[in-house]
């Protein structure tokens, strides 16, 4: 397995070298920032925003503190009824199920779990400890996740979110269980606690 992981990494590296003329990551400064004109978050540390073309026109950004494979913060900032959290590729149009405005907290978290499973191509994903928590001034909720990626690395996750005016605002953080989740957990908790919907 390690051979394949590394081989794939090399192929990926070579692809990046060959095709990416621009930087793949952009600095996120440790100061309040409005994500896609929709959600204000206040990081205390510098993060890196991943430039992904297919996400540019969607209400989502992905950040990482230590590299995508080690941790990721996904910010869903106003996903509308009928829209999926990530865009499905043309080759698999129903890869990601749509969000529905009428979803309960249980259903939103279940959707996040399903989306994570598809995104990481794993069936080893589960959510637990769903509970009500205010988020961005709304009656929100939070839940935790366990997942194992194809690289066999154990990961932990934490999501906090709420629906406002029929749109979903949700922050999802995942990182390696042994280190890179805990390394940024406090920072992420504080960002979740202070997030607000841009007026």
């Amino acid at each position: 397995m390690s051979f394949n992981v590394v081989l794939r990494a090399f192929v990926f590296l070579l692809l990046v070298v060959g095709l990416a003329s621009c930087q793949r990551y952009a600095m996120v400064q440790p100061q309040p920032v409005t994500v896609k004109n929709a959600l204000v978050v206040a990081p205390n540390q510098a993060w890196n925003k991943i430039n992904i073309d297919s996400l540019s026109s969607r209400p989502v950004e992905i950040w990482t503190a230590d590299g995508d494979q080690l941790n990721m913060l996904m910010l869903f900032v106003g996903v509308a009824d009928g829209q999926s959290l990530f865009p499905s590729p043309d080759s698999e149009k129903d890869k990601y199920a749509p969000f529905r405005s009428g979803m309960t907290a249980n259903e939103v978290v279940s959707l996040v779990e399903a989306t994570l499973g598809r995104y990481m191509d794993t069936s080893l994903v589960e959510s637990y400890d769903l509970r009500p928590t205010p988020f961005a001034g709304q009656n929100g909720y939070r839940a935790e996740f366990n997942l194992v990626g194809k690289d066999e690395v154990d990961r932990r996750g934490l999501a906090a979110g709420a629906i406002k005016d029929g749109k979903l605002y949700l922050m999802l953080f995942i990182g390696t269980r042994l280190h890179h989740y805990g390394l940024r957990a406090e920072e992420v908790e504080s960002m979740m606690a202070s997030a607000r919907i841009a007026s």
Partner: peptide, 24 residues
Amino acid sequence: IKLHGAVGNSILLHQYLEPAKLPS
């Protein structure tokens, strides 16, 4: 060991490849 694999890949990518450097 698996975690080292993930960290090693991250180093190869983010430390060695100019377009994949993490500005932070």
